[in-house]
Design a protein around this nucleic acid. Structure first.
Lengths: 134, 134
DNA sequence: CACAGATGATAACTATACATATCAATCGCA
DNA sequence: TGCGATTGATATGTATAGTTATCATCTGTG
């Protein structure tokens, strides 16, 4: 059952992420890191654009950014061009946290598929991406 | 990034499930169906055993079964052998709903990986299962 | 330029998902 | 057999994840 297998992969992936972050003494969830990464790559993006970029719901991202804000990792300012929009950028603390965590995340991303060989991992990711193109 | 790809697959899988259930006029989430399936296959199992069988947290399953109870699909009775445990079984309505939904779920499970060929799907599931064995 | 419709954000609500704490009941071992 | 450890379930709290409704603001068309 594809759905069940995918759910369990996601569950495992989330747990690996949480465990490694805890070991590293960092309080960040997978979604929070994805958002941090997107904000860093595209500073000054509004929340809706960040959500679209990492394939999340706008309403969900609102809460995620709220928590990043509380941790002091990002700033949220009303946009000059559109007063409905809130423009988000990394703070110095956010930048430092990102730099510190990045190597941990890189290792962890590899370890999620540690049951597979290099070649199998490549095939798996290739097929997963193909399935997602739908 | 494996974690991100897996998350998006899960997201897609969940959305396909929700859409098909809605089309079929049924109010069941993926987790609720998984629980219904497990309860049907193993009638009289307690909640903790159900949770273990489909790889969920005990606390989560409590809520899931609570919702199945409200929909009239399952019954929950205190066990004869262990008064801490609640034994769960399908009601007639639950059995009928299961029979009705099963073909829809079968089609849907196939469609989740509709971007892949038969052979690719086989390889993908094989690799996913191998990764999960870890 | 007015205004209908679109868009950004938030709020409220439902449903996972898991950790932790608590309570009740059972079990195992000394 | 007594009691500490374990186990089943629930409650509480946090974090996603998405829907729908609402409000503020913007934009395009007439």
């Amino acid at each position: 059952m594809p759905g069940h297998v995918i759910r369990r992969l996601n569950q495992m992936s989330t747990q690996v992420f949480a465990a490694r972050m805890q070991e590293a003494g960092v309080d960040l969830t997978p979604v929070q890191f994805a958002a941090l990464d997107a904000i860093r790559a595209h500073p000054g993006l509004d929340q809706a654009s960040i959500a679209a970029r990492i394939a999340y719901d706008r309403a969900t991202i609102g809460g995620v950014i709220e928590r990043l804000l509380q941790k002091g990792y990002v700033q949220r300012v009303v946009s000059d061009r559109d007063r409905r929009a809130r423009v988000v950028t990394l703070t110095d603390a956010g930048e430092q946290a990102y730099i510190m965590i990045l190597p941990v995340v890189d290792v962890l991303q590899h370890d999620i598929l540690s049951g597979l060989t290099q070649e199998e991992r490549r095939v798996f990711l290739s097929l997963a991406n193909k399935a997602l193109d739908r």
